[in-house]
Simulated assay, not measured.
Amino acid sequence: MTFSLVARCADTGMFGVAISSSSPAVAARCAYARAGVGAVASQNITDPTLGPLALDLMAQGLSAPEAMAEVQARAAFIEYRQVLAVDAMGRTAIHSGPKALGIWTQAQADNVASGGNLLANDSVPQAIVDGFLGATGHIGDRLIAAMREGLAAGGEAGPVHSAGMMIVDKVSWPVADLRCDWTEACPIEAIATAWEVYKPQLAAYVQRALDPREAPSYGVPGDE
């Protein structure tokens, strides 16, 4: 009931995750990323411990494939899980358990991996990978483009209701963490709209955290 991608920008070293599902609040329990380390999506009958575990393993120096092998060895009920990872060198790894739901499949390349379950067809993850690789600009723009391609390829077998996009870059917190936890409209387009608003302000929010004395004004009444 989910399709997603994890990705690394080869130019900036930023990591991102984008995900959508028919379930509510999918990004709250499935999307994980850590600056300088990697990004992980843990989905399909989700075990939220697997994302942090994979990131911890990559932070210790394991590659994405090595970390995924360790996750497979340690995790309970791994046959029900689907986990995607990308590491700081752009290496990718995917685990799709044989008890993943419905039509499930995966696709990967350098710097990007995609997977899904309960899909409309088995072409969706490859469309997402191709969409990311074919897009240009900020990693956020490329994540949105990739998810739109996945939706255009068929997406989930039924309507999606939630989506999210997380981006990390240098600092210890996500520089963008945008979510649509439930809508009867298109949650991917809701995230795209939020990104259009947030993207021009992203650097200012980081600067306010690091040193508000050097930050731009807030642009609200009473702010001078």
Rank of each mutant, 00 (worst) to 15 (best):
G155S: 08
A120V: 08
S172A: 14
D169K: 05
Q126S: 09
A145D: 09
D122P: 05
G102F: 04
P221I: 12
T49M: 09
A27R: 02
F132G: 04
V124C: 07
E224P: 03
V17E: 08
G154H: 09
T92P: 04
A113W: 00
A35D: 10
Q72N: 11
L5E: 08
S123F: 11
G155H: 05
W182K: 10
D141C: 01
I19C: 02
S22V: 07
Q82F: 02
K170C: 08
R179S: 07
M165N: 08
C186S: 12
P65I: 05
D122W: 07
G97T: 11
L151W: 05
S21R: 04
T92L: 07
L55Y: 04
E196V: 04
D87Q: 06
Q82D: 12
G115N: 08
W195H: 07
E196K: 13
R91W: 13
A190Q: 13
A107N: 08
L118E: 13
G61C: 05
G155M: 06
C9H: 06
A76L: 14
F15P: 00
G13I: 01
F15Y: 10
L143G: 00
E149V: 01
D47H: 06
V197T: 14
C30N: 13
G97A: 11
A100Y: 00
D130P: 00
L119R: 04
R179M: 10
A33I: 02
A127E: 07
A59K: 13
P52Y: 09
G102Y: 10
G155C: 03
A157S: 10
R213Q: 14
A33D: 13
A18Q: 07
C186D: 15
L50K: 03
A157N: 09
G131K: 00
I78K: 12
S217G: 13
A190D: 13
I19M: 02
S22N: 11
I128H: 02
D47G: 01
A10E: 14
G36P: 00
A35N: 06
A146H: 05
G155V: 01
M89E: 14
T49A: 12
D211W: 09
V206I: 14
D169E: 14
A28Q: 15
G36D: 10
Q43E: 14
P125H: 07
M14G: 00
E70G: 00
L84K: 11
A35P: 01
R179D: 08
R81I: 04
A204R: 05
A215V: 02
I191P: 01
A204T: 06
K170I: 08
D47C: 02
D177S: 07
A18P: 01
T92M: 11
G16D: 13
G36Q: 03
Q201D: 14
L143A: 08
Q201C: 12
E224K: 13
L5R: 00
V71G: 08
S4C: 13
S217Q: 14
I94M: 10
L178N: 09
E224L: 12
T183V: 01
M68P: 00
D87L: 03
